[in-house]
């Protein structure tokens, strides 16, 4: 979709190194590269799915884009602004346009605040609304996320997991942002509740013309919500492309093994049994060459030494593997 829509977010060669501290004095003893030259763009109104196993760097990508952690290097252009060159104050202003919803709906809500105060907080923080206008807006937001007005006076612990996630979403959309990072927003929920939240996110995207970076480790959810997807492995994007194309025709050996590993109820789905052994290495000691070479069933000699370059597979579809050159 959306080939003629303008690009809202451009991320180029994004890098995030975390310092590794050791000893009683917590001296910096080295660093860990959580995100390694990640590049992608997202068009207005589009959903880019970011998928990969835990620890591969998905959350860090989302947080680095919003500068909730400071990127080490790279370029982030949002709606024409070079975000990494902005002062903290200027960045704060941009954040009204860029919000995040996180996985754990309980720890992201202050237990001592009522739902009304939680949802009103962004307005108070940005000095946008007060009095009756604020109360009306908060009530309207609750309705938008499908919650009855009596919940205004409740506290987070009185709500179910699904309701708490609705409150997180209400707060995220309060200042009418254009872009949301959705970091595993349904991973803590049961499937029937997940379905409700996924529908809500789809409605909001349509009604508010929102653009999403949707992070998940669940390949069925990613397939359902995304227009395009990027697959990450140990800090790097190994494949990116339109969702149907990547699922029907995965190019990178990792994508192929990942898709083959999904336990699926579509029993007649044709797939090769293509199990990989081992686990993702630690980001502290990434292997040389292709990061996937220690587990790759198709590994070549070159893969152990040389990092593969990006190869074009099709329109908007590329992958980084030596076999594709």
């Amino acid at each position: 979709m959306s080939h003629n829509l303008p690009t809202l977010l451009q991320v180029n060669n994004l890098v995030k190194d975390f310092p590794i501290r050791e000893g009683v004095f917590r001296r910096v003893a080295g660093s860990l590269r959580a995100v390694d030259r990640v590049t992608f763009s997202i068009d207005e109104g589009e959903t880019l799915g970011l998928v990969g196993e835990s620890g591969c760097g998905k959350t860090t990508v989302g947080r680095a884009i919003l500068r909730l952690v400071e990127p080490t290097a790279g370029l982030v252009i949002f709606s024409g602004d070079d975000l990494l060159s902005l002062s903290p104050r200027e960045m704060d202003e941009r954040r009204t346009n860029m919000q995040v919803v996180m996985q754990d709906p309980i720890s992201s809500l202050d237990p001592r605040m009522s739902i009304k105060d939680i949802v009103a907080e962004p307005f108070v923080a940005h000095g946008r609304l007060k009095g009756q206008a604020l109360r009306d807006r908060v009530a309207a937001l609750l309705e938008m996320v499908g919650m009855a007005p009596q919940h205004l006076w409740r506290y987070p612990h009185e709500l179910s997991g699904g309701q708490r996630q609705r409150i997180n979403i209400a707060r995220a959309i309060a200042l009418s942002p254009r872009f949301l990072v959705l970091d595993e927003p349904t991973s803590a929920l049961d499937v029937s509740v997940q379905a409700q939240i996924l529908n809500l996110l789809a409605d909001l995207q349509r009604d508010m013309k929102l653009t999403y970076l949707f992070i998940s480790h669940d390949l069925s959810v990613i397939k359902h919500v995304s227009h395009r997807i990027a697959i990450m492995y140990l800090g790097r994007v190994v494949e990116i492309g339109p969702v149907d194309e990547v699922y029907d025709n995965p190019a990178h050996p990792y994508t192929q093994t990942l898709l083959a590993a999904i336990p699926a109820i579509d029993l007649d789905r044709k797939r090769k049994r293509f199990l990989i052994s081992g686990e993702m290495p630690s980001a502290l000691t990434p292997p040389p060459g292709c990061h996937f070479h220690t587990r790759c069933p198709l590994v070549q000699e070159t893969c152990r030494r040389v990092e593969p370059a990006k190869a074009t597979i099709g329109k908007e579809h590329s992958a980084s593997c030596h076999l594709l050159r």
Partner: peptide, 18 residues
């Protein structure tokens, strides 16, 4: 329950909910 699970094969815009 089966309908509420996002599927890999068919594509639908809205998931049926309980």
């Amino acid at each position: 329950l089966l309908q509420a699970i996002p599927k890999l094969v068919e594509r639908i815009d809205r998931l049926p909910v309980i």
